[in-house]
């Protein structure tokens, strides 16, 4: 669905995360965690390609998105301007009814998809733990910017990303990190729980997404199930398939 929305606010959230808030009543109702949108300033080819915006939270008929603060679209997205969205894109995450304990983890790469997931989990009465690992490239996300209900833990590069207790507590895991971090996660889960069950851990695959709708194949990955498109089958994929 291609829609025109009006920008309400364009603010720096923290470090390299910019937030763009738009009015989009239908989308605010329907967009789900795990999904994203592609945005562009109408009638403008600078930047040429649409940019990935990740929902952070919805409030009434507004959606606040996160994007890279260095992106050239930030300069075009001034309040009251129109933002053209292709949305919602990607596969929505639906929590299993038995999954009451949700473990979220970032190794510094991204946090926005986890925050939107956290809001949804909290609203549905689930307990949420977020583990953030500090890396050289990325400092620790400030606790004050997270929903109060989240239990927040931080680690550093010399420590395990997630400890065995957290892995044993979790009914479902959602992680944003590098491929190397996902390998580490796979090993840690195998160790703590003896195997990695399907649908237990899902990981966000970072990819350039020029079209967002399965036309360009630029976001293709080879998963255990074969050819997959990050924009359609992801961006969250089952860890077992990666």
């Amino acid at each position: 669905m291609q829609i025109q929305t009006r920008i309400i606010a364009n603010e720096r959230l923290w470090a390299n995360i910019q937030t763009i808030t738009v009015t989009a009543p239908d989308l605010a109702r329907t967009i789900r965690p795990g999904q994203f949108v592609l945005a562009r300033a109408p009638n403008n080819f600078d930047p040429y390609l649409r940019r990935v915006l990740i929902p952070l939270q919805t409030r009434d008929d507004q959606i606040q998105f996160a994007m890279d603060a260095a992106d050239p679209l930030v300069a075009r997205a001034y309040p009251d301007a129109i933002l053209d969205l292709l949305a919602p894109l990607g596969r929505a995450i639906h929590f299993d009814s038995n999954a009451r304990h949700i473990l979220l983890a970032t190794d510094g790469a991204r946090i926005a998809p986890l925050i939107f997931l956290a809001h949804a989990a909290i609203q549905s009465g689930r307990a949420v733990v977020l583990v953030a690992r500090q890396t050289n490239a990325s400092p620790i996300f400030p606790a004050a910017l997270l929903p109060e209900e989240i239990e927040y833990h931080t680690t550093n590069e010399n420590e395990a990303w997630m400890d065995a207790d957290a892995l044993a507590w979790a009914d479902a895991i959602y992680a944003c990190g590098t491929r190397a971090a996902y390998r580490e996660l796979f090993d840690a889960i195998s160790h703590a729980r003896y195997r990695v069950p399907r649908e237990f851990a899902r990981v966000w695959m970072e990819a350039a997404m020029p079209c967002g709708v399965g036309e360009c194949f630029a976001c293709a990955i080879e998963s255990a199930r074969g050819f997959a498109l990050t924009c359609q089958h992801g961006p969250f994929f089952d860890l077992v398939d990666i």
Binding site: L49, P210, A218
Partner: peptide, 16 residues
């Protein structure tokens, strides 16, 4: 795989 150019982009997806 995708690199911005002024008014366009460079695509290197090796015909995925």
């Amino acid at each position: 795989r995708v690199i911005d150019l002024p008014g366009g982009f460079l695509l290197n997806s090796r015909a995925a």
